[in-house]
């Protein structure tokens, strides 16, 4: 009994000494690398202010904010803001729009980008191929405000290129683009393809260039057709990159490009049934209506579901191939 107590005390003393030693060691390391630690301070501070402080701000969604009492002093109202939000038809419309657009964008962009990348890689003349590469990246370079101008130049009711030069060729009369909702799902999809496919295409092209040429040489000797080579060599070998890009996009399926849905339709009220997404709703609720409750509830709804989706998509990548996972 006594012996065991003694042994126990010894062990504890040892453990304490170990802890002290490791503390000392850590302190020594901190002192040794203090310059490195100091170097990280600006970024640590910036992320704290810009990213972490607003995370605590999600409590706003559960409060009835009035500025006299400040954020901390305002009254807690539980899930009331969410109740109001989900009672309106807005919640359904913005969720539907965000999801449907993203699903269409993901499928269309992936298929088109792969097809274009394969064609770009097969063009024998390097100069021609390079020129195409540079030019299809141009739309990726400009801001959504400029995209708004370009779309206006095409679609303006009186002066636009569509109504003045293209539709007459087919004998179709003027269309008032900015007041008819039925066209916008197509317009927004085309604009999204126009702006985003070049970038995705270059990524897939890089993956295709990385494929060992010997596979194709062997296949050609065996008499495989072009189409068979694409199906049995190119596609399987770029699948890792494609799945990563797609899963990343799925992780962001609850987010939309604010500029695309706000600038390109020129913030037009009549078009809102088909152009309102979670991001534009949060913005309008905050800036135009000053409704902090609704807008922060919608924002938290987006961030929370988005967070879960990132975790889920990462879990799937991790299962498939842990090298490709984010974390």
């Amino acid at each position: 009994m006594e012996a065991s107590t003694k042994a126990y005390a010894e062990r504890r003393a040892e453990a304490a000494a170990d802890r002290a030693a490791s503390w000392k060691q850590l302190l020594r390391r901190v002192r040794k690398y203090r310059t490195l630690l100091l170097m990280t301070l600006p970024a640590v501070l910036y992320f704290f202010i810009n990213n972490y402080l607003p995370m605590f701000g999600v409590v706003i969604a559960f409060k009835n904010i009035n500025f006299a009492d400040g954020i901390l002093g305002s009254e807690w109202i539980g899930f009331k803001n969410f109740e109001y939000l989900f009672k309106t038809s807005d919640a359904y419309i913005i969720t539907r729009n965000t999801l449907l657009y993203n699903i269409v964008f993901i499928i269309l962009n992936t298929v088109l980008a792969i097809a274009l990348a394969i064609m770009l890689n097969d063009i024998k003349n390097r100069i021609v191929s390079r020129t195409f590469q540079s030019l299809i990246l141009l739309p990726y370079l400009i801001s959504m405000v400029i995209v708004g101008y370009l779309v206006l130049a095409m679609l303006d009711v009186e002066k636009g290129y569509m109504n003045n030069s293209i539709l007459p060729l087919f004998g179709i009369g003027d269309i008032s683009w900015y007041s008819e909702t039925k066209h916008w799902p197509f317009i927004l999809t085309i604009v999204n393809v126009w702006k985003g496919v070049g970038y995705l295409c270059i990524i897939y092209l890089a993956a295709i260039i990385g494929i060992d040429q010997e596979y194709y040489e062997a296949a050609t000797i065996d008499g495989a057709s072009k189409w068979q080579q694409i199906r049995s060599i190119t596609i399987p070998l770029i699948t890792p990159v494609v799945s990563i890009m797609t899963l990343l996009a799925i992780g962001r399926i609850f987010y939309s490009d604010f500029g695309l849905f706000y600038q390109v339709p020129l913030n037009t009220g009549v078009l809102m049934p088909v152009t309102n997404t979670i991001d534009t709703y949060v913005y309008r609720a905050l800036i135009t209506m000053g409704d902090l409750g609704m807008s922060s509830a919608a924002g938290l709804y987006q961030a929370a579901v988005g967070f879960v989706l990132v975790l889920v998509s990462n879990y799937i990548v991790n299962k498939k191939n842990s090298d490709n996972a984010l974390f």
Binding site: F47, P54, F56, G57, I71, G299, L300, A303
Partner: peptide, 15 residues
């Protein structure tokens, strides 16, 4: 973690 979760527009704007 800053890439995974964000507080959203409203808290950022108020801040």
């Amino acid at each position: 973690f800053t890439m995974l979760f964000n507080g959203g527009l409203v808290p950022t704007y108020l801040l």
